[in-house]
Write a protein that binds this DNA or RNA. Structure first.
Lengths: 113, 113
DNA sequence: TCAGATACATTGGTTTCTTATGTATCCTTA
DNA sequence: TAAGGATACATAAGAAACCAATGTATCTGA
């Protein structure tokens, strides 16, 4: 089972930030594979979604980059900046809060009014 | 605190279906107020988002409608059709599953590879 | 040698929501 | 009795975020 794409919308940035917070530095392809692996294939981040997101994070000063050569192939590592670390905390706690709210909403059985 | 709008994306249809499953029939304005109330103002569904969603659900045959007059004012009630009830179960369990996956992702502390 | 994996990236299109606007009725209060 | 706020429907234009497709290039194992 793969989640319908609407569900992923809005959580991608938070997922990426959280992964970077836990792993110091990661490169794009690695992020797609890690997410796929951690979610047992239920979330598959496409490159068309990931790269624009990473570039946006960089433009916002939330991540810094460094390129490395593996043989002749370029690899671009992303790391959280100080403001990126703060932003990660914000986004993660907002998402955690949102999850609690959604769990509550999904369990509603009767009218309250 | 109001959740950033990206977070709501993709969950609106599921929220509406779930509310209808629990309340037999509801009208648009009532849905906006109920969600606001149940989430302590953290989720505020705008009419510009809700009505197109309701119309789409109707076009997909997931809900049926009946109009009622309160004085001279029209009120349009929405109810789940049989296929809407099935769809609700699907969407709710998908979202519940997604929530578990997200909780897991947010708690990751170390690399697994 | 050739398919599949690794690794970057962009473009065009769709979906979904936001903001703004429009119409109309009902109720409360100054 | 007039006005503001709540109730109640609806649409339209635009933005945001993602998907699908495509492109380039390198590396690896059978």
């Amino acid at each position: 089972m793969i989640y319908s794409s609407e569900l992923i919308k809005g959580t991608l940035k938070t997922i990426v930030l959280k992964l970077l917070a836990d792993n110091k530095k990661m490169y794009g392809y690695e992020i797609t594979q890690r997410v796929k692996e951690l979610t047992l294939d239920k979330i598959q981040i496409t490159e068309g979604a990931l790269y624009p997101t990473l570039h946006a994070l960089e433009a916002d000063g939330l991540v810094t980059t460094e390129t490395e050569f593996i043989g002749k192939r370029v690899r671009k590592y992303y790391s959280l900046s100080p403001s990126g670390k703060n932003k990660t905390k914000e986004k993660v706690s907002e998402l955690a809060d949102f999850i609690e709210t959604m769990k509550f909403l999904l369990d509603i059985k009767t009218k309250t009014a």
